[in-house]
Amino acid sequence: MALLEVKDLQVRVEEREILHGLTLTVNEGEIHAIMGPNGSGKSTLSHVIAGKPGYEVTGGQILFKGEDLLEMAAEERAAKGVFLAFQYPVEIPGVATMNFLRTALNAQRKARGEEEFSTPDFLRKVREVSKSLNIPQDMLKRGVNVGFSGGEKKRNEVLQMALFEPSLCILDEMDSGLDIDALRIAADGVNALRSPKRSMVVITHYQRLLNYIVPDVVHVMSKGRVVKSGGKELALELEASGYAQFEDAA
């Protein structure tokens, strides 16, 4: 069943069209990789799906579980199960990570008409997840991402992913700024969350990440469109021959 359907999406940022009719369907439980050179519109796509302000959708639509995603506020999308793991997670000084996690989780549950987590249940859950991701408890007492290393920031994103249990995870350039060890920890965390009920869209410039998070489908983006789709072998092919061939094709 289709979880996410992006149909002929056209997006502008300040008069400049970035996406020119992008189409993409992600079924439940599938892992899709989106690859492409810088400026091909990969991050724009992730921002538009998550509802970041500043983008003007001039055509097409995005359906999530059959509902019109573009009609929803960013927080509604989150409550419905859309999770964006940011390429550059922001630092929020003064807001303790623990407090942030609880507030966000309960806001999502409230929006879905579910009961809020009790404190002991919440703490147990956070402890469990943070342990598996090798996140020390004192990191959770600090401000959100404040003073975190690049790897810690990405692990904090994965921690949230595990905690909020979204049905769609968009990983925007998760490998940027990570060394191999940090990448492996984050990727193991993501792999642990693979489930037939959860889909993922892995946005990356390099094939490297896909050695750790193995996709079912690989799409190549160029100049605001998907120009080629295929199996995981497409990523290897790209690694060998580069993006140039597709830039001409677009």
Partner: peptide, 27 residues
Amino acid sequence: SLLFYLKARGLPEKQAQALLIQAFVGE
């Protein structure tokens, strides 16, 4: 960008603002 991060994690506008205001005066 902070507001969007919080909203992307499910916080309604006012709640996201309140959290950031509390952190701001918390200093």
